[in-house]
Amino acid sequence: MTAALETERLGMRFGRSWALRDCTVSLPAGAVVALVGPNGAGKTTLMNLVCGLLRPTEGRVRVFGEDADSGSAEALARVGFVAQEHPLYRGMTVAELLRMGRALNPRFDRNLAEMRLGALGIPLDRRAGALSGGQQAQVALALALSKRPELLVLDEPLASLDPVARRDFTRTLMSAVAEDEVTVLLSSHVIADLEAVCDRLLVLDHGTVRLDGAIDDVLAAHRMISGPREAAADVPGVVRAVHSERHSDLLVRTGVEAESLQHVLHPTWQEHPVGLEELILAYLEQSAVTR
């Protein structure tokens, strides 16, 4: 099966600094991928490369096997993009924005967009600038979805929304995933929102990939263990260690067969499953230390 998104040693340099380097990932079709990382990690750069807004300095990006960075009409039609702060032409009405969508996209489904926005109670004759932030986000999402893209890219879609708008937006997005079988790449630094929404995780930091995998696999492959500090040095696969005077908390990468840990560990060690947020933060902290 071809990957929905495939990058190969992808790199992007701005001036003398690399925003993204040596990024090789392969995201399966149908996945909802959370792209996570601190500000400046290279999330937006990666997304702009996928959307064809940037040309890579090195490496390649493929969307369903076809080059995405060519900037051709076909490549653009395959990817839907909702940019940060979901920009719209504020002076246009919603209906005019949909007309624009149809004028600029060959597969644009205006009826679908009108139906979805109608169901959300968003008036088509209202100017975009007069809509609430949540409604603007919904219009931007409707524009991107009505393109009938194979890959939908969303840059911090939830960041500027209040909790209700956030839930509504996520619900629309998830319904679209269920109905249109679109693959989603979604960046966020609000990790708590992601667990129910995403099934795959891609952690970026300082332009490099820290972690990449299905969320369930990743969680199953890690354990939080706590035990005597003097024995902490013997534990293999430590991602992050927090030591107090006589006692250590370790986040350990165990591999999917978690039993392997039991042989190594002294019985005094206690083992807990690890949460997504805890795990992501551990990886980001670790990279801050090792750098």
């Binding site: 619900r171 998830m174 995933v177 269920a178 995403c198 099934d199």
Partner: peptide, 18 residues
């Protein structure tokens, strides 16, 4: 159905399928 669960829970359909 998967769509109904997605509509009420705001959850990834793949999760429901799984």
């Amino acid at each position: 159905t998967v769509k109904e669960v997605v509509g009420t829970l705001t959850i990834n359909p793949n999760t429901v399928v799984k």
